[in-house]
Structures are given as structure tokens and as C-alpha cells.
Amino acid sequence: MITLYFTNIEVAIEKLTSIRDRLLTVRNSYEALENNIKGNVDIENRMVRMGIIPRHRAINIQSATFNISIHLAPHYSWLFNKLNENLAFINFIINEIDKVISYLQSINARGASVALFIDYVNKRTKLVIMP
């Protein structure tokens, strides 16, 4: 749960915009990382369909001139799923912040204090405006 308290509506709009921009940066980084590991996730899925149980393996290829060691670490599917979960939470929080900002911009009482509660697990948001 995220709990934020602001002294007035102007500060709330400014700070929430700043938080939203930072979250957008994090989301873009997560999406870039997700795109980088998609190929490895596909390889792991193919291995599972072929009946190979993915686990850490070292494959050694020997030739006359040199040896090649290939390490397979099948953690990409797990990491991909965790990134998707975190992206869902980040997207929810960004959407809720957008809703709150648009609502706060329409309020005339600029001197009121604002408390914001975002429960991203239960998908609930509470906005309390105090005179």
C-alpha cells in the first residue's frame, strides 16, 4: 500500500506528476529488459516442449583447437513472469495517479490538504481531501 500526504492541492499535483514521471521511467526500463530476455524465454519454452527439464547445465564442446563451455541457466521464464507482475503494479499505480491528478485539477479549494492511499494488491484507491 502506498500512502501519501500533501499539505495542499497544488503541492499534491506537482509531487504526483513527479512520481508519475519516475514510474514511467521505471516502466520503460522494465519493458526494455523484458524485450531483451524474450528470446531466452522462447528457448526455455522450446526445451520444455521437447521434454528437457530446464536446470543449470554446462555443455562442453571440444575441438582440436579450443574448448567451448556453454552455460544454460533457465531462470528467464521466472524473471519474465516477475517483470510482468511488477509492470502490472506499476501500470495500475500510474493509471490511478493520472485519475487523481485529473480530479485534483478540477477542485477549486486549493488550500485543502490531500491524503492518497493506493492499495495495489486489492486494486483500491482512496483520496481524502481535508479542509
Rank of each mutant, 00 (worst) to 15 (best):
I13P: 02
T3P: 02
W78Y: 12
E34I: 05
T3Q: 14
E10Y: 13
I43K: 09
S63T: 15
I9G: 02
L4G: 08
S29Y: 06
T125M: 13
I19Y: 14
I118G: 02
M47W: 05
I90K: 13
V114N: 03
S63L: 13
N84V: 07
L72R: 03
S29P: 00
L127V: 07
I90L: 15
F117Q: 07
A88K: 13
L72P: 01
E96C: 02
V11N: 14
A58V: 13
A112R: 12
F80K: 09
A58F: 07
L16A: 05
A58Y: 05
V100D: 03
I97F: 08
V26Y: 09
K99S: 03
A109Q: 10
V26A: 13
A12H: 07
S77Q: 06
R110M: 07
L127M: 08
E96F: 04
P54Q: 04
L4R: 07
T17K: 07
A112S: 14
E10F: 12
K38C: 03
H56C: 08
G51E: 01
K82M: 08
L83G: 02
S106D: 12
N81C: 06
K38D: 06
S113P: 00
Q62C: 06
T17W: 04
R27T: 10
I101N: 01
I52V: 09
E31P: 00
F89T: 07
H71Q: 04
M47S: 07
E85F: 08
E96H: 04
A64E: 15
W78P: 00
H56Y: 04
Y5S: 14
A12F: 10
P54S: 03
A109K: 13
I2E: 15
I43D: 03
V114E: 05
I93K: 10
M50N: 08
L23F: 09
K38P: 00
L104N: 01
N28Y: 00
F66Y: 09
L33I: 01
S18H: 12
A88N: 12
N95M: 07
M50G: 02
N91E: 13
N81W: 04
N81A: 14
A58Q: 14
N108T: 13
S106E: 11
M130N: 10
N108I: 09
F66V: 06
L87H: 01
S29G: 02
I53S: 09
Q62H: 12
Y103F: 12
I118A: 04
S63N: 11
I68V: 13
L83N: 05
S69E: 11
A73H: 09
M50L: 15
S29W: 02
V100R: 00
L23Y: 12
V11T: 14
F6R: 05
S69Y: 02
M50C: 06
V128P: 00
A112H: 11
T3K: 15
A32V: 03
P74W: 00
R27E: 14
K38H: 08
L24H: 06
A32M: 06
F6S: 08
T125C: 11
A32S: 12
N95F: 09
L79P: 00
K82E: 14
N36D: 15
A73L: 12
N81M: 11
D21M: 06
I59D: 03
A32P: 01
A58H: 10
I101K: 02
I70R: 01
A88D: 13
N28K: 08
E85N: 10
I129W: 03
T65M: 12
R124E: 14
A109E: 13
G51Y: 00
Y30S: 08
A109R: 10
I90W: 11
